[in-house]
């Protein structure tokens, strides 16, 4: 816990510096007439201050907090696979259309979260895709991309 907190503090301090630099390229104005860059610059300084405070606090504290067990590697794989699948959905949604993308994304998500029989996964994904299409496109009237299936 302690090491990751220190790492976070350092990253945040760096981020504060970056934001301050970016904010300094906007017009600051003056205290009398504050302009666009005024508020973000103040916030960047605050962020730097709080990050340093976090680092100081963490250094002072003895590492007594009993850390729960670290995340196992298979959990990391599950999480990455889930995220990759969702990113894929965003990328193909408008070309493949809602129905096809939903079917594929459910197929992969169901497998990513727990390995199970393909026949079951295909059936489930199909049902979920059709039901959600009915729910969103028909009942709720949400405009959804038609894509190559043109429905």
């Amino acid at each position: 816990m302690r090491r990751s907190t220190i790492a976070t503090g350092l990253v945040l301090a760096g981020l504060a510096g970056l934001i301050f630099f970016e904010a300094s390229r906007l017009t600051f104005g003056s205290i009398r007439v504050p302009r666009t860059g005024f508020f973000p610059s103040i916030l960047a300084i605050l962020l730097l201050f709080f990050s340093i405070a976090l680092l100081v606090q963490t250094r002072r504290q003895p590492d007594s907090e009993s850390r729960e067990e670290p995340i196992k590697s298979d959990a990391w794989i599950r999480i990455s696979a889930t995220l990759a699948t969702m990113l894929g959905f965003a990328l193909v949604l408008e070309t493949l259309g809602f129905l096809l993308s939903t079917f594929i994304v459910m197929l992969l998500l169901l497998r990513a979260i727990e390995p199970q029989k393909w026949s079951r996964v295909i059936a489930l994904a199909l049902v979920i895709a059709l039901v959600s299409y009915f729910l969103f496109a028909w009942l709720l009237n949400v405009p959804l991309p038609a894509g190559i299936l043109e429905i």
């Binding site: 408008e94 939903t102 994304v105 998500l109 979260i113 969103f136």
Partner: peptide, 28 residues
């Protein structure tokens, strides 16, 4: 079972965000 529940929640999040402005950038 969570194996159905979690994918469903994720799917609803994806559709929910997209349906706002039909904007893929918002999903990202």
């Amino acid at each position: 079972p969570y194996i159905i529940l979690f994918p469903l929640i994720l799917l609803f999040c994806l559709i929910g965000v997209y349906s706002l402005n039909a904007n893929v950038t918002e999903i990202i």
